[in-house]
Design a protein around this nucleic acid. Structure first.
Lengths: 226, 226
DNA sequence: TTCGAGATGTGATGTAAATCACAATTGTAT
DNA sequence: ATACAATTGTGATTTACATCACATCTCGAA
């Protein structure tokens, strides 16, 4: 698999041939590639950050410490950028990022990034569209969480994993029941109960973390109207 | 008051002197200024859009139709841009915008906007930071709505109006109780009750829509921990 | 294998807040 | 002013869901 899709990595490698080692060091510093294992913290809420994060490959849990419990804001899936608003803005991470799978990450220096934006308007456009997706997600999230009751939110989360993350009706949930509750705004117990209900009604099949969506339409209905 | 702060309006007026009337028409079309009265719909959810909206002056209610009730996502305050992700993305409005006060709006043609981004990287940067603010707001919103109970959400909304919108502890709420509930995810009755509670406890003073924040600290505490 | 810790399922109970119901108040047009 | 509609306040009832409590299951370490 070719993971060398980071714009800054490619820039570096093509430019490297014509550069002396001092300049090469400087450029190396502008994009550093790091691997994370499941459970590793990529960056922490409230910490200072001067890098843009490019998730090359892997699933990442984006979460914050809420007044009562940990709140999962979203599950990010590579390839995607993280921390652009933070790093362009007040430089303080407004959320934590934790690897849910083996994850390949590029840390891109802010100045390198800014230069790239300035000389490449298509890229700026691409980023804005990417941020757009986030914005839409959050609009979704807000309505979802506010108005639907728990079965609706849980159904939506299941469809989200099937459609957006795994692109498959059969998948292994990368969260435990507690974390699934942190994502959907439910208690651990409520998640359990609702999943077994869905199971009994034949909407899904569960075997621990292995989940199979059976009746997509019914789940979609619950997600929209439940 | 000088309202001519729209980048595209200024471009037009300075360029206009050297242009023939055909070219002028074309440029006029690229940025159209419109006034809205209180209650007017600026654009509607699900409608097609090929314009970026620049709110020059005024308060705008950003809302969507949820499964159960209308949901207010945020109160936008000019000067600010709206619809950038929409117009760069799938061109369908993902929310409605309704004027809460007299509002001055520029409708900017997408091509004009794109050209401007391409030739002005500072501007792209500015927009990304602006979108960033939105993203942060929504993170806030999500945790807020999910984990706090209603007094906390209502306290936060009151502080939001005082600090962000009116920059004054005394203000006239631009929403009725029902709409205030749509913003905070509460029923009309719950908003009433909570506000009278706050009033009785001396945290605020209410006279219909006139609200005065008395004990900021207490409200902040409730907003954070309530 | 056995053990034990963490994860999960499930019933009983408590509670925040929606809903229902109606009264009181305010605003608005005639 | 009068009438009527919309908004707001407040009590009573209902309900979704959290919390509590405890049983069961899973899985890794000894």
């Amino acid at each position: 698999m070719n993971l060398d899709i980071c714009k800054f990595c490619s820039t570096r490698s093509s430019a490297a041939e014509q550069l002396g080692s001092d300049e090469l060091d400087k450029l190396n510093y502008s994009c550093v590639k790091v691997s994370f294992s499941k459970g590793d913290i990529i960056f922490k809420q409230n910490a200072l950050s001067s890098n843009i994060i490019y998730i090359r490959e892997g699933l990442v849990n984006i979460h914050i410490t809420g007044p009562k419990r940990e709140q999962i804001l979203k599950i990010a899936k590579g390839p995607t950028y993280l921390g652009i608003p933070t790093t362009l803005g007040d430089k303080i991470n407004h959320y934590s990022a934790t690897a849910l799978t083996e994850t390949e990450v590029c840390f891109i220096d802010i100045n390198t990034f800014k230069e790239f934006i300035a000389t490449n308007s298509d890229f700026a456009y691409e980023i804005i569209v990417d941020l757009c997706k986030n914005e839409l997600y959050h609009f979704h999230c807000c309505v979802n969480q506010l108005q639907k009751q728990s079965p609706g939110r849980i159904a939506e989360a299941l469809l989200f994993f099937a459609n957006e993350i795994f692109e498959n009706d059969k998948f292994i949930l990368p969260l435990n029941r507690h974390e699934f509750g942190d994502l959907t705004g439910c208690s651990r117990e409520n998640v359990s109960r609702t999943l077994t209900d869905f199971n009994k009604e034949g909407l899904i099949k569960i075997d621990g973390k292995k989940i199979e969506i059976i009746k997509v339409d019914s789940l979609e209905w619950i997600s929209k109207n439940g």
